[in-house]
């Protein structure tokens, strides 16, 4: 139990340190409202994708197909929208079409999740291989459907999802906060959430205790797919387009964000709050570096350093405690 909290403490320290550093180096820029808003614009997609990754990691699995899922889901929605609505002259009743298109996109994402779930839970394929295959397959489908072209020209109403601001808060952030809240609710307060942790720790024992592992895993991968789909909606809205291969570099980052937030790579432990915290750190760090004029790639390297630092500190503190006990 102790080591789980210690990650949050380390993260808290790092956040404060980074904030202080940024403020010292660039006091005029860093804490301006506009800047904070700007930060919040990039967070949602990565955040939703990380939630999609984390929930599968809690069951002791992984979902390498989230980015591919998001792309296919975004492409389906964008195809329906561009086929049925001319963005310059939206036909009456286009609201219904938009909802239909979004539902179709999300359903696609959930369907891929279902397939992952069946492979993992019913056929008993190791999650990393099942979702790796699914990733390549779905990537292939996105290329086949788009033939490599960009699908652009979405109606204004859709663009609001990623770019709109309500009461000074970007719409994407609101969606992310809502989704993170729902995920926290599922994990902490529902039977499904409880079972996700149990299956993640020891599937044999949970099975012997009457938990329907198959159902739990399938639901988990469907949720994972759905969250990737929601991320897709924000993504296509922000770019005003959909295409194969968007956001592929996010994949490994979502694993980093989850682990940094205290999700155990072996499954069974991890909290939404930790993930949100780690996302905020990653985002602040990259925005800060951005303002300092440092390349985005140094940010990526920096993320790598942070995660190794956290793991090393954890390891050493566990060793020290062990020695104290002895």
């Amino acid at each position: 139990m102790r080591s789980r909290h210690s990650e949050l403490i380390i993260l808290g320290c790092i956040t404060t340190a980074i904030f202080a550093l940024m403020w010292v180096f660039n006091p005029n820029q860093f804490l301006r409202i506009g800047n904070l808003q700007n930060m919040a614009f990039q967070l949602p997609e990565l955040g939703l994708l990380s939630l999609a990754m984390m929930v599968t990691m809690l069951t002791g699995g992984i979902n390498l197909s989230i980015i591919a899922t998001a792309n296919l889901s975004g492409i389906v929605t964008a195809l329906i929208l561009t086929a049925m609505i001319n963005p310059d002259a939206p036909p009456p009743g286009s609201g219904g079409i938009i909802i239909l298109a979004i539902c179709a996109g999300l359903l696609t994402a959930m369907l891929i999740g279902l397939l992952n779930g069946i492979l993992v839970a019913v056929i008993d394929v190791s999650p990393i291989l099942a979702t790796l295959g699914m990733m390549i397959l779905v990537n292939g489908l996105t290329i086949v459907i788009t033939k490599g072209y960009v699908i652009s020209g979405l109606p204004n109403a859709v663009r609001f999802i990623g770019n709109g601001v309500v009461l000074g808060i970007p719409m994407g952030t609101i969606i992310f906060a809502l989704c993170a809240g729902i995920m926290a609710l599922i994990l902490n307060l529902t039977v499904l959430g409880f079972n996700i942790y149990m299956v993640g720790s020891n599937p044999t024992a949970s099975n012997f205790a009457g938990v329907n592992n198959t159902a739990v895993l399938i639901k988990t991968y469907i949720i994972s797919g759905l969250y990737a789909g929601i991320a897709a909606m924000i993504m296509i809205s922000r770019f005003n387009s959909a295409k194969a291969g968007y956001g592929e570099s996010y994949l490994l980052v979502t694993i980093l964000a989850s682990v940094l937030g205290g999700t155990s790579a072996a499954g069974g432990f991890g909290k939404v709050s930790g993930l949100v915290m780690s996302l905020i750190i990653l985002q602040i760090a990259s925005s800060g570096f951005n303002l300092l004029g440092v390349s985005a790639f140094l940010t990526i390297a920096f993320w790598g350093f942070i995660i190794i630092l956290v793991m090393v500190v954890n390891f050493i503190s566990a060793k020290v405690l062990e020695r104290k006990a002895a």
Partner: peptide, 20 residues
């Protein structure tokens, strides 16, 4: 550190530094 986590992190570090 779990090998997958270590090597994802070092991937980002090696690559990030090279590009910079």
């Amino acid at each position: 550190i779990p090998t997958i986590i270590t090597t994802i992190a070092t991937l980002n570090i090696y690559y990030g530094i090279l590009i910079v």
